[in-house]
Computed example of a mutant assay.
Amino acid sequence: MVEKGDVVSVLGPNGAGKTTLIKNICRIQNPDSGFIFIDDTNIHNYKKREFAKRVSYVPQQIVPSFMTVFDSILIGRRPHINWAVTKEDEDMVWDVIRLFSMEKLTLTYLNQLSGGELQKVQIARAVVQNTDVIILDEPTNNLDVANQHAMLAMIRSIVKKNNACAVMIMHDINMALYYSDKFVFMKDGQVVNCGDKNIVTPDLVKEIYGIESKIMYNSGMPIVVAKKSDFNNEEKLNEIGWIKKK
């Protein structure tokens, strides 16, 4: 169960079913079985507009369009707009633009942005949508390490401040451990384990990724470290987010 204030990371190897899971949550796909509830209401009982006020979604990939950064972020306000865009809507967009330090990009077209800048626009759009639930498919995609930390810290801060919750697919298990409260580990389309940091053990890492590891601690924070026997296994290390695909 995901509660208000939670940041939840969904982890697992490629093809584990992570993206399918969050697409079911976002009503992009329908589950083969089972039900998903928000505040005791089946998500399929919400009308489309009401659901868009409850859940926002940041996909892994987006095709840049001939639209400015400001207008693209403003689209996030669409579920809340009645007859026309209000000053409140515009003010909220400007607040988020300043929060993401994108003031100089407001009139830049999306097809002129770098991958990292485009990712920031997508997340800013979800934030301005002002939902209870934010779903993110690899939010650190296309960001360098410094911006990955900055983005995840910002997401966590927004969730805590707004008493919302975030569910995000992550590949880097240590980045997830640092910024998340709960974890869902998947393999072969099944949830293998879920819970807080205490569920992350060498046995679980071995079961999910096939990597021999040990858990170390830095200021009370767990860190997964691969054992020397797997140092040169790029395929396995890539699954856990430690080697980027070329």
Score class of each variant (00 low, 15 high):
residue 68 T to A: 11
residue 192 V to C: 03
residue 239 E to H: 11
residue 31 P to Y: 02
residue 123 I to P: 06
residue 81 I to G: 08
residue 2 V to D: 11
residue 60 Q to E: 12
residue 213 S to G: 05
residue 74 L to Y: 05
residue 218 N to L: 14
residue 160 K to D: 01
residue 167 V to Q: 00
residue 103 E to W: 06
residue 166 A to V: 01
residue 51 F to H: 07
residue 61 Q to K: 12
residue 14 N to Y: 00
residue 232 N to L: 15
residue 96 V to S: 11
residue 43 I to K: 10
residue 128 V to R: 06
residue 183 F to K: 02
residue 201 T to N: 01
residue 178 Y to M: 10
residue 133 V to H: 05
residue 22 I to K: 00
residue 44 H to T: 15
residue 52 A to I: 08
residue 244 K to D: 12
residue 176 A to E: 07
residue 134 I to L: 14
residue 52 A to L: 07
residue 164 A to G: 03
residue 230 D to S: 14
residue 116 G to R: 04
residue 219 S to P: 03
residue 103 E to S: 09
residue 192 V to E: 02
residue 141 N to P: 02
residue 13 P to C: 08
residue 45 N to C: 09
residue 235 E to V: 10
residue 50 E to N: 15
residue 87 K to D: 12
residue 166 A to Y: 01
residue 6 D to V: 06
residue 134 I to A: 10
residue 73 I to G: 08
residue 42 N to I: 01
residue 94 W to M: 13
residue 12 G to C: 01
residue 105 L to D: 04
residue 105 L to E: 09
residue 100 F to Y: 12
residue 125 R to L: 10
residue 58 V to I: 12
residue 173 I to D: 01
residue 93 V to Y: 14
residue 159 V to Q: 01
residue 197 K to H: 12
residue 169 I to R: 04
residue 26 C to S: 14
residue 115 G to E: 06
residue 35 F to R: 14
residue 104 K to Y: 05
residue 12 G to A: 02
residue 177 L to A: 15
residue 44 H to S: 12
residue 194 C to N: 05
residue 40 D to Y: 13
residue 196 D to A: 03
residue 49 R to N: 10
residue 97 I to K: 12
residue 98 R to F: 03
residue 88 E to K: 15
residue 135 I to T: 03
residue 88 E to S: 12
residue 7 V to K: 05
residue 188 D to I: 02
residue 198 N to A: 08
residue 171 H to N: 13
residue 195 G to L: 02
residue 88 E to H: 08
residue 181 D to Q: 05
